[in-house]
């Protein structure tokens, strides 16, 4: 979520040319620069950033993949004296096989048994939360975008849930979903919310929607604000209804911002951990992939590395498909200018 400054929904409305504005053929200009030695300077200037990226991103990724291919001491078995044998042996894709195909050893109560359900539940949470968040977020964004008295207050109120740390949110909702909690009191029901599969899942979705709708609303608001008011005016003059204005003007123009928001939310929910962990501890069909990773981490870190690598690939594929199919423009690139 720290990446919000990279999101520039305004780019469509603004000039879409090369960022450096150095002429009609940026590629040629670049070659000239390299020749003049500026390229080497550039390399030196970005070196610290690249090294930092490698250290904080490259190293953990490579280490995780590396350890997922080696035997964990905790899986090495006991010698007759009761000590663990030495680990570290190359085991190839043994741990990956465990997750994808552990067969008869996958009885309930093992992490392997929870693998496919965890994927399903993670995708379920992703679909459900993003669906509701987009609809509600759009409504909130339109509310925040209007001009009326007390708009500042409305904006502040809408943004409050997002300002609360997720762990605190989860704990608050846990109190509300409690059997003695306020929800049962207000609704005059006797539902054990966190004790059944359906309601526990609903609880996670409700809490997440409550918490993150403001995030979508904020991104959409940014998209709405760059739509020039005169377009609406002329549409009104032409006799367009409010619904038509929304369908024909607002939606297409806010689409870039919307897609970016959806992409970020999807990537975010695919690794959801804190909300279900605090609300249910993963019980009642709310175990997500991240919860499963942490659970496995307690007994076999190398096996957990394999699972987090799988999670990484899954999220990568989803991100890739979204970018490919929906054409989300996450990072404004000059290639766009060159291509068009």
């Amino acid at each position: 979520m720290a990446d919000t400054q990279e999101i520039q929904p305004a780019d469509q409305a603004g000039s879409a040319g090369g960022a450096d504005g150095s002429g009609p053929n940026p590629r040629f200009a670049l070659r000239n620069k390299v020749k003049s030695g500026e390229g080497r300077l550039a390399a030196r200037l970005i070196a610290p950033a690249v090294i930092l990226m490698l250290a904080v991103i490259g190293y953990p990724v490579v280490t995780a993949v590396w350890s997922s291919l080696h035997l964990d001491k905790a899986d090495a078995g006991l010698n007759p004296q009761g000590f663990f044998e030495v680990g570290g042996k190359w085991v190839g894709f043994k741990y990956y096989t465990y997750w994808f195909h552990c067969g008869s050893t996958c009885v309930p109560g093992t992490t392997g048994h929870d693998f496919y359900p965890a994927i399903g539940q993670t995708l379920l949470f992703t679909g459900a939360t993003v669906f509701f968040e987009v609809i509600l977020g759009m409504i909130f964004a339109l509310m925040m975008n209007g001009t009326y008295k007390g708009r500042g207050l409305v904006r502040a109120v809408i943004l409050v849930p997002w300002a609360i740390p997720t762990a605190v949110t989860a704990q608050l909702w846990k109190f509300m979903f409690d059997y003695q909690g306020i929800l049962n009191k207000v609704l005059h029901t006797n539902i054990v919310w966190l004790g059944n599969t359906g309601t526990a899942r609903a609880a996670v979705v409700i809490a997440d929607v409550w918490k993150t709708t403001p995030f979508i609303a904020l991104l959409l608001l940014a998209g709405l604000q760059v739509i020039p008011a005169d377009i609406y005016e002329s549409a009104r003059v032409d006799g367009a209804t409010a619904w038509q204005r929304f369908r024909q003007i607002t939606l297409p123009l806010v689409k870039p911002a919307l897609l970016v928001a959806v992409l970020f939310r999807i990537l975010d929910v695919l690794r959801i951990y804190d909300l279900p962990q605090i609300l249910t501890g993963g019980a009642n069909g709310t175990t997500t992939l991240s919860i499963l990773v942490v659970r496995e981490l307690r007994s076999s870190p190398n096996n957990a590395s394999a699972l987090s690598t799988i999670t990484f690939v899954l999220i990568f594929v989803v991100a890739f498909l979204l970018v490919k199919v929906m054409g989300v423009n996450v990072v404004q690139t000059e290639a766009r200018g060159a291509k068009k």
Partner: peptide, 27 residues
């Protein structure tokens, strides 16, 4: 071209989020 580049960047961001917690732990 542009899409792969973007995907790569997105991928790296995701990787850091998912894997950062799992660096240690070799036997």
């Amino acid at each position: 071209m542009r899409h792969t580049k973007i995907a790569a960047i997105a991928g790296i961001a995701v990787a850091s989020m998912v894997l950062a917690a799992c660096g240690g732990g070799s036997g």
